[in-house]
Write a protein that binds this DNA or RNA. Structure first.
Length: 199
DNA sequence: TAGGCGATGACCT
DNA sequence: GGTCATCGCCTAC
């Protein structure tokens, strides 16, 4: 196994900002992501290796989709390498193509910035479901990632949203000034003090 | 097999 | 700011 340093993971997360993700008829430009380090990260689903999290232990460049609170789907990009289970949660994006379809899926017509704000909404706008779990993002079929490119504007760093463990690890990254970025909300179960895990 | 919990989001006050 | 809907997954027994 090749150890993945936190700086590499941060670089992977930064690399996804500003990049496009093509879903089922909808394309978004990623504006907010969160990094999860794998078995060493108590906030990651990969902290316990189970059939659900197994996809994160596989090859990088694949999509990990899970259902949260019985209502929403959340999408991650496995950043690997194989066996390390590092992944980046896609939290928000700007819909740049397929606006009508995204509005139809989300039922939002008055504020395009809300179409893909929040991981559940992002997955919904893209039409991502559990059926997309394990999809190869470098393949020809949707979902797939667009070509790498710079974020285009300064990247802001902050603590991760909603996690009960390691809530203070500043592995949430978003593009400065983007209206599509979701609001910060701390998990009520998270301890008040600084987290034990620091990059 | 049953019970508890969660990387959420929308609505209400 | 607070509450609640809702169900797949994990763990304990």
């Amino acid at each position: 196994m090749v150890p993945l340093s936190s700086t590499d993971l941060v670089a992977q997360a930064h690399g996804l900002l500003g990049r496009t993700l093509h879903g089922h008829g909808v394309t978004v430009r990623l504006t907010e992501v969160e990094a999860y380090a794998g078995p060493d990260d108590p906030a990651s689903h990969a902290a316990t290796r189970t059939p659900r999290s197994e996809i994160m232990y596989g090859a990088p460049g694949r999509l990990y989709v899970y259902r949260s609170y019985g209502l929403h789907h959340c999408a991650n990009v496995v950043t690997g390498p194989s066996g390390h289970a590092a992944a980046v949660l896609l939290r928000a994006g700007e819909v740049v193509d397929g606006l009508d379809l995204a509005r139809q899926r989300r039922g939002v017509v008055d504020d395009d910035a809300r179409l893909a704000r929040g991981p559940g909404n992002l997955a919904s706008a893209l039409g991502l479901t559990l059926a997309d779990n394990g999809a190869d993002l470098d393949g020809d079929d949707a979902p797939r990632l667009g070509p790498p490119g710079g974020p285009g504007r300064p990247v802001v760093t902050g603590p991760r949203v909603g996690v009960a463990s390691a809530a203070d690890v500043p592995w949430r990254f978003w593009l400065e000034g983007e209206t599509t970025v979701s609001a910060y909300r701390r998990n009520p179960r998270a301890p008040g003090g600084p987290g034990a895990l620091r990059p």
